[in-house]
């Protein structure tokens, strides 16, 4: 079974940890907990259809700006990224652009996907911006909810497939 490192990026409080915990532990914690630095999770998954097993080591990177080049250092060596935005916010996209740009700068050409999170309580306010982002980064977008679990597993599996298809 091959092992891949995946980083989850996004602004402070957009639900990165909740998404990961939903995927890895199939649970959702109501109690918000600030993530300091980085948390590392591991999940063995089977990609349906291909009946292929992969092991994903998921790095949950703190959303608040980290000192120095720490965020970039945490990205190094990743095979793919999930960029998360919070749909309840007025304008979640600048932070998503910033995170996606940083990932592409450190690891050009690696697959990423966009998670528009909290879909259970909000809808996408600017579909045009989402389209522009998907075109710019050639990536899929998922309207996720860590609370209900909607689109969480498909998103991580889609990323794993993209990684495998690139032969990383």
């Amino acid at each position: 079974m091959k092992t891949y490192k995946i980083v989850v990026l996004g602004d402070f409080g957009v639900g990165k940890t909740s998404l990961i915990r939903r995927y890895v532990l199939d649970e959702f914690s109501e109690a918000y907990r600030a993530t300091i630095g980085v948390h590392i999770y591991k999940h063995n998954d089977t990609l349906e259809g291909d009946d292929l097993e992969v092991s994903l080591v998921v790095w949950d990177i703190e959303g608040a700006p980290l000192p120095g080049d720490q965020t970039r250092r945490y990205i190094v060596g990743a095979s793919g990224a999930v960029v998360v935005g919070d749909m309840t916010r007025k304008d979640p996209f600048p932070a998503m652009w910033q995170a996606a740009d940083m990932f592409e700068e450190v690891l050009p050409g690696r697959p990423l996907c966009l998670a528009l999170n909290k879909s259970d309580i909000a809808t996408v306010k600017s579909p045009e911006t989402v389209k522009r982002m998907t075109r710019r980064y050639d990536c899929p977008v998922f309207e996720t909810s860590a609370l209900t679990g909607d689109a969480v597993n498909p998103m991580f599996r889609s990323l794993a497939r993209s990684i495998l298809s690139l032969g990383l």
Partner: peptide, 19 residues
């Protein structure tokens, strides 16, 4: 102690320690 988590933790520590 999962091996991959240990590896990840050491790499994260390495990145942190560099800064």
């Amino acid at each position: 102690l999962d091996d991959d988590l240990l590896g990840g933790m050491i790499a994260a520590l390495d990145a942190f320690a560099r800064d």
